[in-house]
């Protein structure tokens, strides 16, 4: 540890000033726009307007629902996948982890684009359904919540798996065998041992996935089309179609509040479980 404050500030300030000027100040001004009235005073009428529209309500709830759903499903799949991966032999483990991480290197445009080929009217799924006689006419899967859900899940599942892999690897090696020896079944082992010991990884992964879903633009834009909107796509429309910057500011604020709230909530849930266990002990 060096003690010279002037030196430390000289090193840290350029980055901080740059981030503040390019990012923090403009974003704060943008957010404050939603709370101004034409006379220059403060108001929350823009928020009342926003939430009184049934369309906006639907978009808000859809964003919340898809975000939560993708987070929960990715946690379930993530545990299974991460558990399978940490139990592989070392050489194999590296390769499989590599395959899981690989999609993160590929442009989200390309990854989302692929789903059009799969889910479209003449896509693979519809071809298969018709060939198997499940359906005579092509199903409309694209431009629906289902399509967005699938796209988001594929986009963010790797983040959850990676967070859980590192959490499972940091877990004491003897915890699971010890619980088994003490007579716990696999469900109990998961619920009482693995989950509490990996909850930090779950919180990190959950926050990444949920925030990712809120901030994803391409997936809802391409797979949801112009009708099935999420907050990000709604915001883009408000700006580029309606020129409504106040509404955009409102949406921006809601998005930021939601991602912070998700982070705090997940941390709460994790610590609440902790306290419960301590009280029981």
């Amino acid at each position: 540890m060096f003690q010279n404050r002037a030196e430390a500030l000289a090193l840290a300030l350029p980055a901080a000033i740059f981030a503040a000027a390019v990012f923090l100040v403009p974003v704060v001004i943008l957010l404050s726009d939603g709370f101004r009235n034409p006379a220059g005073g403060w108001t929350i009428s823009a928020y009342i307007d926003f939430f009184s529209s049934p369309l906006n309500q639907a978009v808000f709830l859809r964003t919340l629902k898809l975000g939560a759903l993708v987070t929960v499903v990715s946690a379930v799949i993530g545990y299974a996948a991460a558990f399978a991966i940490v139990n592989l032999e070392p050489g194999m483990k590296g390769k499989v982890t590599g395959l899981v991480v690989l999609p993160l290197m590929i442009s989200p445009v390309a990854r989302t684009y692929a789903w059009i080929v799969i889910l479209g009217r003449t896509g693979i799924v519809n071809q298969a359904f018709q060939a198997l006689g499940i359906s005579d006419v092509p199903l409309r899967i694209l431009f629906s919540e289902t399509a967005i859900f699938i796209g988001l899940l594929q986009l963010f599942l790797p983040l959850m798996i990676i967070s859980l892999i590192s959490a499972l690897e940091n877990m004491p090696k003897d915890a699971v065998p010890a619980a088994r020896v003490l007579g716990a079944n696999w469900f109990q082992v998961f619920w009482k041992v693995i989950l509490p010991l990996t909850k930090e990884g779950l919180v990190v992964g959950g926050t990444l996935v949920f925030t990712g879903c809120l901030t994803a633009y391409i997936t809802p834009a391409i797979l949801g089309g112009s009708k099935v909107l999420m907050l990000e796509t709604l915001m883009y429309q408000q700006v580029s179609v309606s020129n409504n910057f106040v509404a955009a500011s409102v949406i921006a604020f809601i998005l930021i509040v939601m991602s912070f709230a998700a982070n705090i909530l997940l941390k709460r849930v994790a610590t609440a479980r902790n306290k419960q266990r301590r009280a029981a002990a």
Partner: peptide, 17 residues
């Protein structure tokens, strides 16, 4: 912070201000 705030907001704020 830029990692936490949705990119679309960063872009719009930069454009306008």
């Amino acid at each position: 912070a830029p990692i936490i705030v949705p990119g679309i907001i960063v872009g719009l704020a930069l454009l306008r201000y």
